[in-house]
Amino acid sequence: MAAIQTNQLVKTFNAGKVSAVNGISLTVEAGELFGIIGPDGAGKTTLFRLLTTLLKPDSGSATIDGLDMVKDYKQIRSRVGYMPGRFSLYPDLTVIENLSFYASVFGTTIQQKYELIKDIYCRLEPFADRKAGKLSGGMKQKLALCCALIHAPSVLFLDEPTTGVDPSSRREFWDMLAKLKTHGITILVSTAYMDEASRCNRLAMMNNGRFIGIGTPQTIVNEFDKTLLAIRGDEMYRLLNDVRNIEGIEECYTFGDVHHIRLQKDTNLKMTDIEQILVHQYHHTNVKMEPCQPTMEDCFMNASKKER
């Protein structure tokens, strides 16, 4: 049985003027680690609030663990764990007080469920008596995860759990999620960081309330059907604008210390042509170019361009 199944979910705000979720159909199998990536305002948070029964859809339907999201919302609530975008902790309570409070809200105790959170909690234990407000971002995130796990939910919803957390804590967090999967917990996680996508079993790219691509990280990258080039030169900013003027180039954007160039699908433009134009027409120096493998971010940019 699918852990999450949605059918044409629609949610609008301001009397239909703003559509946050615009016809989402999605199936997440039990035990899957499913990612939803997309920029701010793509509708990720609204989708999560719909699936955790905090909002009612305008139309469409969904089941969580086979339970209807409108009719059976009370049962759903005892089965899901939810970690909203802002770490929902009580800053004036200590680590242990936060955790035991959430445990008793779900009618359990830390001791009963210790096995499940042990790996994560052992790193927090030295700070058990510290107030949650005084923890670092990474620590808060771990505590919030423990709180969401304390009742051993069968489906876990994590809304942008890694936003505002430093890179090493982010990596650690994904390691923890991988471990949780071995307990058979279904995890739906949203993120704005494209580089995290590869850690998911499957993922959906979301933009403007719709899915613009869905699949395993590998299939999404394989579906990239255009030529992608990396270019660098002495004057990076001028280079960016000049490349954009060249006929046959679909998009050029900064990508760290290089720029990425995506060619139009049916163009005859070659690397040597581009170099010729840049050197002779625009007088660039030290122009170096090479084909490169698309990353998730390149795929996302391609997909959102297509959608427009």
Binding site: T52, Y82, G85, F87, S88, L89, Y90, F106
Partner: peptide
């Protein structure tokens, strides 16, 4: 404001 209400609402309480 802190978002804890969201979690409480999603709990069976």
């Amino acid at each position: 404001e802190t978002g804890t209400m969201e979690v409480l609402l999603v709990s069976p309480i």
